[in-house]
Nucleic acid binder design. Structure first.
Length: 150
DNA sequence: GCCAACGTTGGC
DNA sequence: GCCAACGTTGGC
């Protein structure tokens, strides 16, 4: 069992959106490292934090589970999509995603600012300088510590 | 292969 | 809205 953190801008897709639809293809990932995590390391049943980015209160807002094997992100082939990639070959798709399933919303947001103050979370990828990855692994110890902050 | 220019992410 | 940090692109 691996643990993950996946970012989404709540204006685009929030934890409440996921709660409503229950299962969602995590589309729009256009970074190779993030893609490789989904493609090569995620397994059905892995748990992931849902992180709200680029918003008033950035932080962890919920928990979800990986709900599918990796498969091609259809938005790369849609000319009208903001995620369209004209260079992606339909016979060898460049961008891959997994479905995620809603597990629960946390009773409150565990904010980025709050996490930065926790010495136990030192070294966590999310908190490293200049980190911009939108899909990243989370150590079990960090996962447990964050849930203990509630 | 280098690297300057450019685009994006995302906190503040 | 600003801007630091980082990734990608493309000329050479």
């Amino acid at each position: 069992m691996n643990y993950w953190l996946m970012k989404s801008e709540p204006d685009v897709f929030s934890i409440d959106d996921l709660k409503r639809v229950r299962v969602e293809p995590w589309d729009g990932i256009r970074n190779y490292q993030a893609r490789n995590f989904m493609r090569d390391e995620m397994r059905i049943g892995d748990q992931a934090f849902f992180y709200h980015s680029n918003c008033d209160e950035p932080g962890i807002v919920g928990i979800m589970k990986v709900a599918s094997k990796p498969y091609p992100d259809h938005t790369q082939f849609e000319p009208d999509s903001r995620y369209h990639d004209p260079k992606s070959d339909p016979d060898n798709p460049r961008w891959i995603l997994v479905d995620v399933r809603f597990v629960r919303k946390l009773k409150r947001t565990v904010t980025l600012a709050e996490m930065r103050r926790e010495s136990e979370l030192e070294g966590m990828r999310l908190l490293m300088r200049g980190n911009r990855l939108s899909v990243m692994p989370v150590d079990k110890a960090h996962w447990d510590h964050i849930l203990g902050m509630l």
